[in-house]
Design a protein around this nucleic acid. Structure first.
Length: 219
DNA sequence: AACCAGGACGTGA
DNA sequence: TCACGTCATGGT
């Protein structure tokens, strides 16, 4: 039997579809209605539906590096209000305004440079799907950010590994903890059917489960 | 009041 | 290659 696939079904039965990646204003809801908060879309694996939503997910992937999502939402909303949640707007915005907008998400000096670098790259793409190597070559985009963009923004079935993933696997006794990013990524990709919805949902479920593990311990 | 949050880069060994 | 310091704000 397949341990990782069986575990996925357990998690799904326990928590249900998570609806990643959250968007500020998905189709069907006005921005004011979303109450300035990311909207999840459980069971819908067709998003993003527009280049704008795709770009929003990519920026979120950068801004959430070692940062709580709640802080990222503030930054995304600020950018949206400054009309800089588009690559053209980002290219035009003043440096100090940009940093002020993303300040709540932390590391604002580095992240300002990162999202500017990415905005230029995104424009040059012209709707094409980038390769993992192209993304990794950009300053500020490491393995997890690249995989998050590919999986949730560009709909490429590649598995995302993060701190939560490691925590769950360690708690289950399936890894020691010193394994490399790519080693853990390969574990999943070698044992699971390469399916977009499965990969998207699995990572989201691992995050939810890891948060529950932490919550049961203390806090 | 330390500690962590949906990491990545620069450096030295 | 790899361990370690740095980056920064916000919530618990």
């Amino acid at each position: 039997m397949n341990t990782l696939l069986a575990f996925y079904h357990q998690l799904l039965a326990c928590y249900g579809p998570q609806g990643w990646w959250p968007l500020l204003d998905p189709p069907g809801e006005s921005p004011s209605q979303s109450g300035s908060r990311g909207v999840y879309h459980p069971g819908n694996y067709d998003l993003p539906a527009t280049p704008g939503q795709r770009f929003e997910i990519c920026l979120g992937a950068i801004l959430t590096q070692n940062t709580a999502w709640r802080s990222v939402e503030k930054a995304l909303i600020n950018l949206q209000q400054m009309k800089a949640l588009r690559p053209e707007g980002l290219e035009a915005i003043d440096e100090s305004l940009l940093k002020e907008a993303i300040r709540p998400s932390g590391y604002f000096n580095q992240k300002a440079k990162k999202i500017r670098t990415f905005a230029r790259f995104f424009l040059a793409l012209e709707e094409r799907t980038p390769s993992r190597e192209e993304l990794l070559a950009l300053w500020g985009i490491g393995p997890e950010t690249a995989d998050s963009m590919l999986l949730y923004a560009f709909k490429v079935p590649t598995f995302v590994v993060d701190a939560y993933t490691r925590r769950v696997l360690i708690a289950a006794g399936w890894i020691g903890g010193t394994e490399s990013y790519d080693a853990i990524k390969s574990m999943f990709e070698n044992q699971l059917p390469r399916d977009l919805a499965l990969f998207q949902e699995y990572h989201a479920l691992l995050v939810e489960h890891a948060k529950n593990l932490r919550g049961s311990r203390q806090e």
